[in-house]
Structure formats: structure tokens, C-alpha cells
Design a protein around this nucleic acid. Structure first.
Length: 315
DNA sequence: GGCCCTCTTTAGGGCCTT
């Protein structure tokens, strides 16, 4: 099965599918495996945290629902809007998203993995000194709760606001979680998307050198081990296989250059996590179509975070 | 920092991520 045959062949079917916005105010953590013992709910009960899940329709077949309606409160929706600015929410609502689950309900169970496209914004390039300040992910299967994004309090000054527009004031709000507080939310979200017995395939551009080591180090700082069934694929080396009309390799395969190559419109601010996730979703679709890559072939290219040289212990 | 390419491998420059 080709990812591109699913997504690209039905590009015209993509439509506005972000119909509701839910701020998630909770963390009475649901027990599952050893992770249930790793987090104390004491910290999380003391203050409401805001992450944002964007949804449209019910997705069947996942292990559990992420909606947790008893944890949804109107005030957390309002605080999410404040964190993500009204203008940004309007932009997000206007974005297209994948609708694969609805259009290909008979096919989805054949996917060998849950495919999550993700992106992070950070305080800089050093995985050891800098921190993640924004995380966004989109499940290619689409459906309810197909996207998840949040700002993250890095507990240090942000000096590269000029890059992404994320300021210290935005991150110091009491409802913006620290990474340690985000982990149980993120784990629960991923489990809600994961199919029984199948791994999670995380996809990021330059993920091998940047996003995945950053994520790994944040988990390690919190003394939490990443789930063993989390696999990662980097679209950068895949894009380096592209050639131009003369058969020469491309001089640049940055996400921006790929967006231009495939004539993908920029509907929001570049260097914001969810915008780049949306761009990468379209790039991935075009990329896999052009290179005739299948989902199983993507899986073959996957790696575990712990296998990366960048995540080896310091000497 | 990792990866790729080449005027290479006993090296160096450029890309890619914030």
C-alpha cells in the first residue's frame, strides 16, 4: 500500500476538517503499563494546563478515546485561545487536514503503524542546553483528535523569539505545562491514536539530527524512557533522493524549499510547530508519491531514538 | 551535531533543524 496513493490520489478530497477546538484541562493520569507509576498526579492537580486538540469527526479503531469529556472545561478552552492567539486559531481552522479515515475507512486497518507527523520549536539548536518550547503533531489517519499541540514552559529564557514569535510571556503563563507535565498527556494522546499491536511511526524533517534527539533528551531529563514501539523517520534523507528536471540532486531540501517545489501554500506563520507539521504532511504526500515510497518502506527506514549516536551518553 | 558530497577517506565545506 502506498501512502501517496492514499493521500495524493485524493488530494482534492481534503477539506476543512477542524471543526472544534478542545482545551484539555486534566491530568488525573490513566494507568497504563509502568508509566503509571512514573508520574505523580500531585503536581498536575494543583493547576490547570492547556494543550490543544483539534478535531472533526469520530475515529474508530483506536485503543481509547482522548476526549475524556469529564476533563473538558470551558475555561480551559478559553485559556487555550489565549495561549494560541485568536488569529492563530482562525488560521488553523482554515487549514486543510487529512481525512483518510473517513474516505478510506476500509483501508485504515491495513496501515502497519500509526503515522504521526510532528515538529518542535526550541530555544536554540543545542539539544543539551536548549529546550523544547512548542510541540505539534498530526495523525495522518485524521478523524477526531487528529492534531495535538501545546506550548511548553522551558524554564529558561527564550532568546530566539525573532525566529518563531514565541515569547517568554507566552511560556510563563501558569497554564503552559513544563515538559515533565506534558509527558503523561502526550503519552495518553499517542495511546489514544495507536492501533493494537502496531507501532507508532513519528515523522519529522531533519528529525534524526534535531527533533528526535531533542525529544529524547527531554524525556531523559524527566527520567522517563520513551516507549519501545515509538519509531522515527526522517524525511530529510528521503528528500535528498529527489532530482531536478536535469537529473541532478537538489541543492536544497529544506522544508521551505520542498514547500515551494510542490507549490504548497503557506497559510500561517512558518517556524510555528503546527504550521510546519501541516506543510510536512503535504510534502510527505508529494514526496512519497514522487519517489514511489510505500508505508512499509517508510517503516524499513525507521529508527529508534535510543539508536541514534546523538542520544548516546556523554563521554 | 549528524549527514552528505567531493577538489575525499590522514578533510573540509555546506546543508538542515531553532
Amino acid at each position: 500500500m502506498s501512502l501517496s496513493s492514499i493521500c495524493c490520489g485524493n488530494f482534492h478530497l481534503l477539506k476543512n476538517s477542524i471543526g472544534s477546538t478542545c482545551g484539555i484541562k486534566f491530568l488525573k493520569y490513566h494507568s497504563r503499563s509502568i508509566y503509571a507509576t512514573l508520574f505523580s498526579i500531585r503536581r498536575h492537580q494543583s493547576r490547570p494546563l492547556s494543550t490543544t486538540v483539534l478535531a472533526r469527526s469520530t475515529r474508530k479503531g483506536s485503543k481509547q478515546s482522548f476526549s475524556n469529556s469529564r476533563h473538558l472545561h470551558s475555561e480551559s478552552v478559553e485559556s487555550s485561545i489565549e495561549v494560541f492567539k485568536q488569529s492563530e486559531l482562525e488560521q488553523l481552522k482554515s487549514l486543510h487536514t487529512y481525512n483518510v479515515a473517513e474516505k478510506f475507512s476500509g483501508v485504515k486497518t491495513e496501515w502497519p503503524a500509526t503515522i504521526l507527523v510532528f515538529d518542535i520549536e526550541t530555544t536554540g539548536f543545542s539539544r543539551r542546553e536548549d529546550r523544547i518550547i512548542e510541540f505539534a503533531v498530526r495523525d495522518l489517519m485524521g478523524g477526531k483528535n487528529s492534531t495535538f499541540q501545546t506550548l511548553i514552559n522551558p524554564e529558561k529564557d527564550v532568546k530566539n523569539t525573532y525566529i518563531h514569535g514565541i515569547s517568554n510571556n507566552m511560556l510563563s503563563r501558569p497554564d503552559v505545562p513544563r515538559f515533565g507535565e506534558l509527558i503523561p498527556i502526550l503519552l495518553q494522546y499517542v495511546w489514544s491514536r495507536q492501533m493494537d499491536g502496531k507501532p507508532v511511526l513519528w515523522i519529522a524533517h531533519n528529525g534524526r539530527s534535531f527533533d528526535v534527539p531533542f525529544l529524547f533528551f527531554e524525556f531523559r531529563r524527566c527520567k522517563v524512557q520513551m516507549p519501545g514501539d515509538w519509531l522515527f523517520v526522517d524525511t530529510l534523507p528521503i528528500a535528498r533522493q529527489l532530482v531536478d528536471s536535469k537529473g541532478s540532486k537538489l541543492s536544497s531540501v529544506s522544508l521551505e524549499k520542498l514547500r515551494e517545489r510542490y507549490k504548497i501554500p503557506l497559510t500561517g506563520s512558518a517556524h510555528r510547530a503546527m504550521q510546519d507539521v501541516t506543510t510536512l504532511c503535504y510534502v510527505l504526500q508529494k514526496l512519497t508519491f514522487e519517489l514511489k515510497l510505500t508505508v512499509p518502506q517508510l517503516l524499513e527506514k525507521s529508527f529508534r531514538a535510543s539508536d541514534l549516536p546523538a542520544t548516546r551518553p556523554e563521554k
